[in-house]
Simulated scan of single mutants.
Amino acid sequence: MDKQSNSTADGAALSGFARLDAEPFPIFEPGWVWLVGAGPGAPGLMSLLCYHALQSSDVVVYDALVNPGILKWVRPGTELEYAGKRGGKPSAQQRDISVRLIELAQAGKRVLRLKGGDPFMFGRGGEECQHLVKAKIPFRIVPGITAGIGGLAYAGLPATHRDTNHSVIFLTGHDASGKMPANVNWQAVATATPVIVMYMAVKNLDEIAEALIAGGRAKDDAVTIISNATLPQQAVAHTRLGEVREFLSHTELATPAIVVLGPIADWRAVFDWYQGALRENPVG
């Protein structure tokens, strides 16, 4: 079998991350917008294309959920613009963010729109793409590890497992007004799958629990709340669906958080790997 050489044209051996310098990454052209997922939090979970974009962009427009440790990887001279949106706090308007992306691209900038998790998983990436298409701005989508999968993994919860569930539902726990989404068919969702993963659901969790129980979900179904997923300060709390209101009355939950409903909670006792010294590494 032929051995593949890991060397430059002049014969100098490459090792580690230096080998990436010779890879044919896509060119980040001026006037383009890249919508990039930075992952669920830990810098080590960002993709190679995310790293490449950080090294190639002229301006980074980033969200509130982007770990500051990831922004350390931008090249010197790159502009940083905060465009965070957090529930209940002063936030940039979505339309203003989209307009700003267009303005920067039309000025010939290489614009990196950096989002926590994945741009298309409750990240409003689709809305921003609509504006870019209308303005005839070329763009690229770089997916990221979403908290609803990566965060579960760091909590020792497999999103699917043949012994517990062959399906999973992902949904958001609030609408544009911050209230429980009225356009979710909670009765249908309640019994559609053993596992439901909810983003941004802590604020309305008691109301959501009532709706799911009314739809036929068992009161003793396990609820797992993962705060600051994949970060050293990650915290995991447990309760039951029928006890959510009482639980919330005496428990202060840090956000952002992912809420997981269903029997995969039982796997945590077996798969809880993110402990001790592993938590001390800020890269993940």
Rank of each mutant, 00 (worst) to 15 (best):
Met1Asp: 08
Asp2Ser: 15
Gln4Asp: 08
Asn6Glu: 08
Ala9Gly: 00
Ala9Gln: 11
Asp10Trp: 04
Ala13Ser: 12
Leu14Met: 14
Phe17Ile: 06
Phe17Leu: 12
Pro26Ser: 05
Pro26Glu: 08
Ile27Gln: 11
Ile27Tyr: 12
Gly31Gln: 12
Val36Leu: 07
Gly37Trp: 03
Gly41Trp: 14
Gly41Ile: 06
Gly41Phe: 11
Ala42Lys: 02
Leu45Lys: 01
Met46Asp: 02
Ser47Trp: 07
Leu48Ala: 09
Gln55Leu: 08
Ser57Gln: 09
Ser57Lys: 06
Asp58Val: 09
Asp63Tyr: 03
Val66Arg: 05
Arg75Leu: 06
Pro76Cys: 00
Thr78Arg: 10
Glu79Cys: 02
Glu79Gly: 00
Ala83Cys: 07
Ala83Gln: 04
Gly84Lys: 12
Gly84Phe: 12
Pro90Phe: 08
Gln93Phe: 01
Ile102Cys: 10
Glu103Met: 02
Glu103Gly: 01
Ala105Cys: 10
Gly108His: 07
Lys109Phe: 11
Leu114Arg: 07
Lys115Arg: 08
Gly116Arg: 06
Gly116Gln: 04
Gly117Ile: 05
Asp118Cys: 05
Pro119Arg: 03
Pro119Gly: 01
Phe120His: 13
Phe120Ile: 00
Phe120Leu: 15
Gly123Leu: 05
Gly123Ile: 04
His131Asn: 11
His131Glu: 14
Val133Cys: 06
Ala135Thr: 10
Phe139Arg: 13
Ile145Phe: 02
Gly156Gln: 08
Leu157Asn: 03
Leu157Trp: 04
Pro158Asp: 02
His161Ile: 01
His161Met: 00
Asn165Asp: 04
His166Lys: 11
Gly173Asp: 10
His174Ala: 00
Lys179Met: 09
Met180Pro: 00
Asn183Ser: 11
Asn183Thr: 13
Trp186Ala: 03
Ala188Phe: 05
Ala190Val: 07
Val195Ser: 12
Ile196Arg: 09
Val197Arg: 10
Met200Val: 08
Met200Cys: 05
Lys203Cys: 05
Leu205Thr: 10
Glu207Gly: 00
Ala209Leu: 09
Leu212Gln: 11
Ile213Trp: 13
Ala214Lys: 15
Gly215Ala: 07
Arg217Asn: 06
Ala218Ser: 15
Lys219Phe: 00
Asp220Ala: 13
Asp221Phe: 03
Ala222Gln: 14
Thr224Ser: 12
Ile225Asp: 06
Ile225Trp: 12
Ile225Ser: 06
Ile225Leu: 14
Ser227Pro: 15
Thr230Gly: 00
Gln233Lys: 15
Gln234Asn: 09
Ala235Lys: 15
Ala235Pro: 01
Ala237Ser: 15
Leu241Phe: 14
Gly242Pro: 07
Gly242Asn: 11
Glu246His: 14
Glu246Gln: 14
Glu246Thr: 13
Phe247Asp: 04
Ser249Gly: 13
Leu253Asn: 05
Leu261Glu: 00
Ala265Cys: 06
Asp266Pro: 00
Trp267Asp: 01
Arg268Glu: 10
Val270Met: 09
Phe271Leu: 15
Trp273Gln: 09
Tyr274Gln: 02
Gly276Cys: 06
Asn281Phe: 13
Val283Thr: 08
